[in-house]
């Protein structure tokens, strides 16, 4: 019987079928249970979809390849928790498409960078990182200062994300452009309450780049950086929480 492998080796179709079967066993066992998302994502309060401005920031983050140097995942290891704060929860990246966990850390992890610095600092640091960290090898992104954030089709972007399960409502999609302007304080301030109503109270409404008149790419990327890791209500989090009892909100 052990000599029969020559049959498989000499018949490429048969070989292919056997390879597919072998891989599927491992794959199915690992992947299928994960589709039952409620068993793998901890119930934790506070997680909301990104606002349109933050989403525009994430697009820039991906376009510029920031993930090539920065991870967004604090692993439950002592040294990482000491340095970056509470380990990341699956729920915190459940609306990231694509997720930004990464594994390359030329620069520090950014999963909880929100609130660590002021907007002003981010502006200065994006334009010239070496001004603050002389030995930094992070490149300058000064072009973002003068480029408008791409908000024309941001509503369509929300609608697309809705297709893959991000709970954007119709009114969020409809008002996406205005919400982005409002968050960067370039719209009218009366619409702030509508923004809060749609996305909840935990939103930074500021003129992130400190410049009036336009919503620049800096506004968008800083809005995104400033929300990273700040949504989850970590005080309530208990790793032994029984997954079956509650579902994420």
């Amino acid at each position: 019987m052990l000599n029969k492998h020559s049959k498989i080796e000499k018949n490429s179709i048969l070989m292919l079928v056997c390879v597919v079967i072998a891989i599927s066993v491992g794959g199915l066992i690992e992947i299928v249970p994960l589709f039952r998302v409620e068993t793998t994502i901890e119930p934790i309060k506070g997680i909301r979809p990104y606002t349109p401005l933050e989403l525009a920031g994430q697009d820039i983050y991906i376009r510029e390849g920031c993930y090539g140097c920065h991870s967004q995942q604090i692993r439950p290891l002592r040294d990482e928790v000491e340095r970056y704060g509470h380990y990341s929860l699956a729920a915190e990246s459940m609306y990231d498409h694509p997720f930004q966990w990464g594994s390359k850390r030329t620069g520090p992890d950014l999963a909880r960078v929100g609130g660590k610095y002021s907007d002003d600092w981010h502006v200065g640091h994006m334009i010239n990182p070496q001004e603050f960290v002389p030995e930094s090898i992070m490149p300058s992104y000064s072009a973002m200062e003068s480029r408008d954030a791409n908000l024309v089709d941001i509503g369509a972007h929300l609608a697309t994300l809705k297709l893959v399960g991000v709970p954007y409502t119709d009114s969020m999609i409809e008002n996406a452009y205005d919400d982005a302007m409002t968050q960067a304080q370039e719209g009218n301030s009366e619409s702030e309450s509508a923004l809060f109503e749609r996305y909840g109270k935990n939103i930074n409404i500021r003129n992130f780049d400190g410049k009036k008149g336009v919503v620049s790419e800096l506004d968008a990327i800083i809005a995104y950086l400033q929300v990273l890791g700040t949504m989850a209500n970590l005080k309530d989090y208990d790793p032994d929480i029984l997954i079956k009892e509650t579902s994420p909100e």
Binding site: P33, T39, I243, K244
Partner: peptide, 9 residues
């Protein structure tokens, strides 16, 4: 577990 029962599913 497929049902999600058990400890952390």
């Amino acid at each position: 577990t497929f049902s999600g029962d058990g400890f952390r599913g």
